[in-house]
Computed example of a mutant assay.
Amino acid sequence: MTIATQAAASKDQLPAGRPPVNAAKVGVMLLNLGTPDGTDFWPMWRYLREFLSDPRIIELNKAIWYPILYGLVLTTRPQKSGANYARIWNREKNESPLHTFTRAQAEKLKPALDDLQNVTVDWAMRYGNPSTASVAERLVAEGCDRILAFPLYPQYSATTTATANDQLFRALAKIRRAPAVRTVPPYYAEPVYIEALAASIERHLASLDFEPEVVITSYHGIPKPYSDKGDPYRAHCLETTRLLRGKLGWDEKKMIVTFQSRFGAQEWLQPYTDKTVERLAKEGIRRIAIVNPGFSVDCIETLDEIGREVRDEFLHAGGEKFAHIPCLNDSPEGMNVIETLVRRELVGWA
């Protein structure tokens, strides 16, 4: 029996669903935060329970945090959060915008990598569905012996990038034939990312009927103690905005940095976005725009928190014109960022 015949016979004897030994596919997995499956109480409860049980998100001792989580937060917050999600819900597809845009990114990345014949693209969520574990299992079943994980967070934080990677490795720990793994590093200062943001901002501002006096780069906040302990997130955010100013030719008065989405009683990174827009309005600033460079796609924090809550706060305080600049999403600029970084990180693999 020849070597080729032996290999074919061996392949035929493999159990159903198990990839052949000589499989050599590379799986590219786009990883985003996550989303509830619906806006009603129980889908929101399940999502919030998974999210707020993550020790990377809430660093309190479980003996202290869990009574608060199960006794107060999960009895009141699902209804409030569900109402917020309902305002932005993609009713045609019955899913959140984050779900819609992340899928679209994966679907557009697939044909962009057609010249790499051994590469397959998929996408997963850290919390909710499609779960990281289910997608990792599917890629391995398809014959991927290597996975490139791409956490879609430009700026690194233990609360985002690290927990996405944690979840992937937890999933692989349960797979006997675990693939080799690479993870795309934070891209907060990558020229292709800065250029994409600048082009998106310029295009959107050109479509407005007013010129903003101030453009705010609003990033999702983290508790200040996390930053004090060494999380580099704040420094990454400041560097993104510094580079963006330089690309646009703006000074520190034209483009400023703020942090949003704080939760709980402890101090978070400052200045706070909501307090800043109120201050600007009271100081006589009448026209502003806000962009969210820390979000790869539009979601509850950008569409509802910025597009509704912060907008209303600014106008109520005396502002007159407000614009929210969309995230890169699956725009040509956004897809160019993803494709460029994926191709770079696949060198030697594909």
Rank of each mutant, 00 (worst) to 15 (best):
K254I: 09
E239N: 11
K247Q: 15
Q270K: 11
H220R: 07
G221V: 04
V257A: 03
R279C: 12
R242D: 13
H220M: 15
I222P: 00
K229S: 15
L205R: 07
E239W: 05
D274I: 03
F263D: 14
L238P: 02
D228S: 13
R245I: 03
L205P: 03
A289V: 06
G221A: 09
T241L: 04
A235M: 09
R262K: 15
I216T: 02
S296A: 15
Q266C: 14
G294W: 02
L244I: 09
Y226G: 04
K247W: 05
R262I: 06
R245G: 01
V215F: 00
T240E: 10
Y233A: 09
E252G: 06
L238Y: 04
I256F: 04
T217W: 02
L280E: 02
T241M: 05
A289S: 13
W268E: 12
S227E: 11
R234W: 07
P212A: 12
Y226C: 13
S261Q: 15
D228K: 13
A265R: 15
I201H: 04
R203K: 13
K282Q: 14
L243G: 03
F259W: 05
E278L: 10
V214H: 04
V257C: 08
A281G: 13
E211K: 13
R242Y: 12
D228A: 10
T241V: 12
G246M: 14
A289I: 05
I222S: 01
R286F: 04
C237N: 03
